[in-house]
Amino acid sequence: MTWQDTDVPALRRRAERRYKMGRFGTYTVAILFAFLAVFPFSWALISMFKQSNDLYVKDNNPFWFNEVPTLEHLRLLFVDTNYLTFIRNTLVVGLAVTLITLALALPVAYALARLRLRWGERMGIAIFLVYLIPPTLLFIPMTRVINYLGLQESLWALIVVYPTITIPISSWLLMGFFKGIPMDLEEQAMVDGHSRIGAIRRVVLPLMFPGIIAVIVFAFTLSAHEFIYALAFNKSSAVKTIATGVPTELVRGDVFFWQSLQGAVILIAVPIALVFNAFLDRFISGFTMGAVKG
């Protein structure tokens, strides 16, 4: 067969058909994944506005308001439960953890990225390996350490322990940002008579702004996500975070306050998800140790 024999219109039709089928496939898979990902959240979203005599009827259509929607369960959540306390605790812990993380991880990242240490690379990998030690392995002795320090049943327990999770990942992340700032800038500042620390403060840190913002987001969201330590250290409701408070407190005996519970989840999960989502790519590249070049 030579090229003269080729039926061009037929080939074009075939290519077009292929393209259309490809588009169709893409949309189908995308919509299917989105549906599966969102399904329990959408059920939660509907539930939180349902009246009890609608929700707790087995044969009612669960995806429809068979009775008028109500805000009663949200009112209950804010007035009759410690939800606001949990949110406040989460914010306090998140803020303190973020400050500690920045104070400790920024210098480490700078030293590893800039000071050309002989053991620098090994140190960097060691820090990353700390990230692989899961809380599951540590929470039992950690409980004793926290008791020994007298921090149990207080937000301090979480403020002291969470940086062990956030420092390793943040150091890696910041290291990448430091490497992205040209060395010449601070060398010039040093030639101009600044000490190294002066050069860092005046020239390098302002350029680190995006990295610092990323670390703030991660330290905050990781603190809000953490479950095991919070469950092990703090059992009184005044010092619970949203991650432990919502699942353990909005249940009385065996009775779940399902609507309020789902409301509590939606109101917190969606804002956190929005913020985290915006920074996810950076997080992943830090998370995978820069193994992913994207």
């Binding site: 959240f41 059920w43 939660a44 539930s47 479950f227 991650a243 432990t244 509590a264 985290f276």
Partner: peptide, 13 residues
């Protein structure tokens, strides 16, 4: 991106 214990609660329901 949602906190894991909270996301799991929606599945519990």
């Amino acid at each position: 991106v949602a906190p894991v214990s909270l996301a799991t609660i929606t599945w519990l329901w």
